[in-house]
Design a protein around this nucleic acid. Structure first.
Length: 272
DNA sequence: CGCGCTGCCTGGAAGC
DNA sequence: TGCTTCCAGGCAGCGC
């Protein structure tokens, strides 16, 4: 279930593609979360990968063509998507939907639940899409002032998940960040003070930083592009820990449902 | 427009 | 043990 740290880890694993040329795409299954349109790829054959980037939970290869035109090959891993290098001759595994051949590497996309997608966008369209999104967690644009302007009328948990204040925060890190900041998930976002927002923004950054440093969270099926598991799970303080004692105060962690999603929290440490 | 609910999809776990 | 049901997740689309 990739969130930002997992996608960031995948991004770093794809850096060896820089300098390689994209040669070929093989589609085994096109009905992903968004239908895969391989015909959009063909004008970009032999383009060179000049950068690997990430925006929110999307990882992208920046391609530059001989005529100078640029495009972005975007991947969204959904919740079960994986991207890894493989041998050119290796047999197709179940749920492998896509293969991209580069001059020195072969990349495959596997996604049992097919919540992920892949497309190729001209650089202008990529920039327009990126401009519609809220700031990245580590962006200096993410300030308490910005957050208070964008808070809206929902609970703070819903606002974190919605992406209207900051992108890339999914259910796991929303729960963990609220715990670390000592803020109750049911609080209306509009009632948070500048100080509380500052604390929450710092908490979001801290949990994401720790998760990236650990190579991403692994709940069940997340692995890096090299196939190594990312075991950050042991460090989660509240997520999935209903009934277990809070690591700080011993109060049993509670599970509630907000917007149809589970929230885990400590009613004592997050009394605010 | 903003907000919340629903459906997409599959495999693993829990319940009967 | 074998069947059914539920749940996880991001996000688009819909209705209020």
């Amino acid at each position: 279930m990739p969130e930002l740290p997992e996608v960031e880890t995948v991004k770093r694993g794809l850096l060896p593609l820089i300098g390689q040329r994209w040669r070929h795409v093989t589609v085994r299954r096109a009905d992903l979360r968004r239908p895969l349109d391989a015909s959009a790829f063909s004008p970009w054959r032999d383009a060179t990968v000049c950068a690997v980037t990430r925006r929110a939970k999307v990882v992208a290869l920046e391609l530059v063509r001989a005529d100078g035109a640029r495009a972005y090959l975007r991947f969204h891993l959904g919740m079960s998507g994986r991207l890894y290098f493989t041998d050119p001759a290796s047999e197709w595994l179940p749920h492998e939907h896509l293969e991209l051949a580069f001059s020195a590497s072969v990349l495959r996309f596997r996604d049992p639940r097919r919540f992920g997608w892949c497309d190729l966008l001209p650089a202008d369209d990529y920039a327009s899409w990126s401009a519609t999104l809220a700031p990245e967690p580590f962006s200096p644009e993410l300030t308490p002032e910005w957050a208070m302007r964008r808070a809206g009328r929902s609970s703070i948990k819903a606002v974190l998940l919605s992406g209207r204040v900051v992108v890339g925060v999914g259910n796991i890190y929303a729960c963990e960040a609220l715990y670390r900041a000592g803020i109750a998930p049911q609080r209306l976002a509009a009632t948070l003070s500048a100080e509380e927002w500052a604390k929450l923004i710092a908490a979001v950054r801290a949990v994401l930083e720790a998760a990236i440093a650990a190579g991403g969270t692994s709940l069940r099926d997340y692995v890096t592009v090299d196939g190594a598991p990312g075991w950050f799970q042991v460090q989660l303080a509240v997520y999935g820990r209903a009934g277990q004692p809070c690591v700080r105060c011993g109060t049993p962690i509670e599970r509630i449902v907000q917007q149809g999603r589970s929230t885990w929290w400590c009613p004592r440490c997050q009394a605010g």
